[in-house]
């Protein structure tokens, strides 16, 4: 069984937000909802300070805090490591949102459902078709799903996630500088595994103890 994971190459990333916006289109996310973000900060003092850029998304942790606290088992981890929410089971208690130290979850409530990209001007065709094709349920929690639809469909079509675009997450495909690499962490020969080994990949805040499947190299 593969264990899907991601490597984000900070050296390559130029913070263009392609991942963020591509993700929004891929999943028809409503305004102000992000499954992918870019954190921009600074460290050090002038003139030797350094800009920090960290694209973040759900870490699909091995010891996921969200899975642990979910009282209904709506949040679950697949065998391949993808942490998902079963919208049909979620009771909307939001314990998962509160417990995620990376804050990668969003409560899909009526305000969000009713929000418009052009406020007060009605929903666009994009939003209307999105609600039809990729429906969320009001009162449940939504989050990055590592584009499992693409991964599953890709595998079904004989493609390899991380190598073939149609079997890889949308953010990986869209990254214009190749800063996102997707693949099987279990396979020592995979690009992700090799990069983590060679470039000493680090998880973001490993001290949280959740064992993320997203690694960063610099």
């Amino acid at each position: 069984m593969p264990r899907w994971g991601m490597v984000i190459d900070i050296k390559r990333c130029i913070a263009c937000w392609g991942c963020t916006i591509a993700c929004k289109e891929e999943h028809f996310l409503p305004p102000k909802v992000f499954w992918n973000r870019v954190l921009i900060g600074e460290t050090g003092k002038f003139p030797t300070s350094r800009k920090l850029i960290y694209p973040v998304l759900c870490n699909h942790c091995d010891d996921a805090a969200c899975v642990e606290v979910c009282p209904t088992n709506a949040t679950f981890q697949r065998e391949d490591g993808i942490v998902m929410v079963d919208y049909n089971k979620c009771a909307g208690c939001r314990a998962c949102i509160v417990s995620c130290p990376y804050q990668q979850r969003t409560y899909y409530d009526k305000n969000i459902k009713d929000a418009e990209y052009f406020p007060g001007q009605g929903k666009t065709e994009f939003e209307i078709i999105g609600e039809k094709l990729y429906p969320f349920q009001v009162g449940t929690v939504i989050k990055c799903n590592f584009c499992y639809e693409r991964v599953d469909q890709g595998i079904e079509n004989g493609l390899i996630p991380g190598i073939d675009d149609d079997a890889s997450p949308a953010c990986v495909v869209t990254c214009p500088v190749g800063a996102r690499i997707f693949g099987d962490l279990e396979d020592p020969e995979s690009t992700v595994s090799r990069l983590i080994m060679e470039k000493k990949g680090k998880q973001l805040r490993p001290e949280f103890g959740t064992d993320p499947a997203v690694y960063y190299i610099d």
């Binding site: 263009c16 937000w17 392609g18 991942c19 963020t20 916006i21 591509a22 289109e25 990209y117 052009f118 001007q121 009605g122 666009t124 065709e125 994009f126 675009d165 495909v173 869209t174 990254c175 214009p176 500088v177 190749g178």
Partner: peptide
């Protein structure tokens, strides 16, 4: 012409809204 693979920058991806803008 453009980024790595099928890559495109954020504003390029966002271009979709030029079509959908009710204004």
């Amino acid at each position: 012409m453009g980024g790595t693979g099928a890559g495109l920058c954020g504003k390029g991806v966002a271009g979709l809204m030029y079509y959908h803008d009710p204004n």
